[in-house]
Design a protein around this nucleic acid. Sequence first.
DNA 1: GTCCATGCAAATGATTTGCAGTATC
DNA 2: GATACTGCAAATCATTTGCATGGAC
Lengths: 156, 156
Amino acid sequence: MAVDREQFRKLLKEKGLKVTRQRLLVLEAIASRPEEHLTAEEIYELVKLSYPEIGLATVYRTIQLLNELHLIDRINFDDGFVRYEMGYDHGGRQQHHHHHLICLKCGRVISFQDDLLEELEAKIAETTGFRIVDHEVKFYGCCVECGGDLLEEKRE
Amino acid sequence: MAVDREQFRKLLKEKGLKVTRQRLLVLEAIASRPEEHLTAEEIYELVKLSYPEIGLATVYRTIQLLNELHLIDRINFDDGFVRYEMGYDHGGRQQHHHHHLICLKCGRVISFQDDLLEELEAKIAETTGFRIVDHEVKFYGCCVECGGDLLEEKRE
DNA sequence: GTCCATGCAAATGATTTGCAGTATC
DNA sequence: GATACTGCAAATCATTTGCATGGAC
């Protein structure tokens, strides 16, 4: 996981921000669902389980804060909600997780990690002079569980 | 370009849809800016130049229609607007254009086409059994014109 | 005690929708 | 002439913001 409670406390203090129960709970809620891509509303519902008094606006404000601190990442699947997931940290280097396979049939979202992308980034940097610092890759299609041919079975 | 006026007329008729001045003008407006990624509001302003009576709602409805007909593609740069660009058609095969380099300094968006992605798709299909039909790839960084090191110069 | 953070309610802003009038076929 | 399309205004809905209260330090 990217940060534990103590690291988070320290990080907040360093920035002159206050450690509040709400902030701790929001981060914990997101950390508790490492494989999911939660909406603000979903995070709100999760936190409400242990702290029913929390307000939705606080969740939105906290999410924004966590994102600025690079503790969580935003993802947009164009379904009308911005989603969030834990930022992953491998060997001290922030490593983003923004590679998703999105099944057009069942809506399932599968995360993956790949090296070919680094190769592609290097090639682009070389060709265009563009200095790449982050990326977001989505592949749309049909997952194994849904099997079959998407095109033939499509009937909506 | 993906379609000319006549092809569009034919396509509409095939689907039992009516050919209206508004529809022709919206498609033309988007086609007239092949390198841009227009918002609904921008398309509205473009069409108003030659047809001031058009309503914004009509633009939204037409955009949705054109997207369903695969004449235009949606792109989301998470700036609060959904954007649209002409769908590209190479050698009769719909070829999507969803590869963008986004400069974090000047906001410039550069489109690119690459084959390494096909390789990556094949690899993913092989590994996960996921059947890929479309993708969307965004690289964030710093363009040549903005030069320099993004991290050092960031001060915001 | 100071000042930031919170909760509530109201505001915002892109997009959608209902409906009566209008244009296409 | 029937019916789909349009324009307008009102509705929607995720997210943001103002403000008075409450909590962290």
